[in-house]
Design a protein around this nucleic acid. Structure first.
Length: 223
DNA sequence: CTCCCGCTTC
DNA sequence: GAAGCGGGAG
């Protein structure tokens, strides 16, 4: 009984992993923060991406990094200048947050961005998602990305109704870990984000061209 | 677990 | 109206 469930579970994880990775090979989007291993640049991207579309961030990201090449440039600039340069992204409190973030990294960590999930998540403006993104992208740790997009894929395929707390729930984290297994986590997570943004969209998902439709409970119920 | 945030895009 | 590579506060 338990054996069968476990096997079916791993079969689905296996198919999700490979289908998403194959899709990503051809369709993964190409943002500057996805190619760097510099924890600072990834941290900046995550602050900007907070509840903000990637295309929107992409418009200002390069010039922002040019203007603020490191954590000390952030502190030197001060909250007001930062708020002004982040204005087009909305959520104006992020200017202050970014300043406090940089100041705390300098004060507590001598300017070095922490390389463990607990210290990262204790920083202002950095929660589970951003901490995982830094661990995965900068420090090559298999940390899962659980955001509205990846949660949507899992909730649809597995038929679990998503709630506001799904992205922090143990259930979704465990499923995501089973999908990651020992694959290239960074590539898989970016592929998954883009798959959700392009195929498994919130409104009118492209189920007819979705490689997961055979396994997807959401799709089965829609037919 | 629930609610809010702020602007842009859909 | 709702939602976005979420995080913090209640």
């Amino acid at each position: 009984m338990m054996e069968i469930n476990k096997k079916e579970e791993s079969d689905i994880s296996f198919r999700i992993r490979n289908i998403i990775l194959a899709w990503g090979e051809k369709n993964m989007r190409n943002f500057p923060w996805r190619h760097t291993g510099d924890p600072y640049k990834i941290l900046i991207a995550e602050i900007m991406l907070h509840r903000t579309r990637a295309e929107q961030v992409n418009r200002i990201y390069d010039s922002f990094i040019m203007k603020y090449p490191d954590i000390y440039a952030i502190v030197d600039a001060g909250p007001h200048a930062l708020k002004n340069d982040l204005k087009s992204l909305g959520l104006s409190y992020r200017g202050d947050m970014l300043y406090r973030l940089a100041a705390q990294i300098i004060e507590k960590y001598d300017g070095n961005i922490p390389d463990n999930i607990n210290d990262l998540a204790s920083l202002p403006g950095i929660g589970d998602y951003a901490a995982s993104a830094v661990m995965c992208s900068a420090y090559k740790s298999p940390a899962p990305f659980l955001d509205t997009n990846t949660v949507r894929i899992i909730s649809r395929v597995y038929g679990i109704k998503p709630t506001d707390s799904s992205r922090r729930s143990k259930e979704f984290k465990m499923i995501m870990n089973s999908i990651i297994d020992s694959s290239d986590t960074r590539k898989l997570m970016f592929s998954m984000l883009d798959f959700a943004a392009i195929v498994c969209t919130h409104h009118t998902p492209e189920c007819s061209v979705c490689g997961l439709n055979r396994d997807c409970i959401f799709h089965k119920e829609m037919k």
